[in-house]
Simulated assay, not measured.
Amino acid sequence: MQQDFGELIEPAPVRFSFGAPGWYVLAALVLLLLMLLAMVIVRYLKRNHYRKTALQWLAAEEQRGPQPDALVYAANMLLKRIAMRNYGRERVAAVQGEEWIKLLNTTCRKPCFDAADSALLQHDLYAAGTLPLSRAVEFVLKSKRWIKTHRHAF
């Protein structure tokens, strides 16, 4: 066949260039996605900043070395403040005892508290004897777990 048509002439290879309009569209889409991702991350961090602050405050209370009963009381009040912030004062303020523990467990991914914690908050905290440090530390650890894993009301 070469004899009939002669030597085939191949065109020069097409050079790569960012001058095509498709690259501008792709760059705009990537930039838009990056801005959207940044907005989502900032919103997440702002929305959960109180968790970090609460955990830092609770750690500072532990380091201060208060009495075990004062530590349990402080942790419980912190849980109340966080719950009121997220679920509303009307739903949380008057709840106490077993209802309070039930509310905490229903707002968490995995239940953290049990009946012993209800008894701790209702009776043991106000009993004449001193509260064992191990019970206070256990309650604070459960409180930290709840702070990290509770759901928002939205």
Rank of each mutant, 00 (worst) to 15 (best):
E62T: 08
L33W: 13
V137P: 01
A115F: 10
L32M: 07
S134D: 09
Y126W: 11
W23S: 01
T107Q: 07
I101S: 00
L45A: 11
W100M: 02
A116F: 12
A136T: 05
G129M: 05
N76W: 15
L37N: 06
R64M: 04
A28Y: 09
R85S: 10
G6S: 05
T149C: 02
E98A: 13
K148F: 07
S17E: 10
A12Y: 09
R89S: 01
F18S: 01
R81V: 09
M35N: 01
L58H: 06
E138K: 05
L121K: 04
L45K: 06
P68N: 07
L29H: 04
A27R: 00
L34P: 02
P66F: 15
A27N: 03
R85H: 15
A60V: 06
N86I: 09
N48W: 11
R51M: 08
Y126S: 02
L26T: 15
I101K: 00
D117G: 00
E62G: 13
F16E: 08
R135K: 08
Q56Y: 03
M77R: 09
L71R: 04
V30W: 10
K144E: 15
R89C: 00
R47G: 01
L29S: 05
L71I: 05
K148Q: 13
Y50T: 05
D69C: 07
R91A: 10
A74P: 09
A27C: 07
W57R: 06
K110N: 07
Y50V: 06
Q3S: 07
Q63C: 03
I9C: 06
Q2T: 11
A54M: 11
V72H: 06
R81S: 12
K52Y: 12
I147P: 04
L78T: 14
L103K: 00
P21A: 03
R135V: 13
A116L: 04
W57Q: 08
T130Y: 09
A60I: 01
L121A: 06
L32A: 11
A93R: 01
P68W: 14
S118C: 12
L36Y: 14
C112A: 06
A119E: 14
I41D: 04
A83Q: 08
L29R: 01
E90C: 02
C108P: 03
G65I: 02
K144C: 14
R43T: 12
N86Q: 13
L31H: 02
R91N: 04
K144W: 03
V40I: 11
E10H: 11
K52E: 08
E98R: 14
M1A: 10
G19D: 11
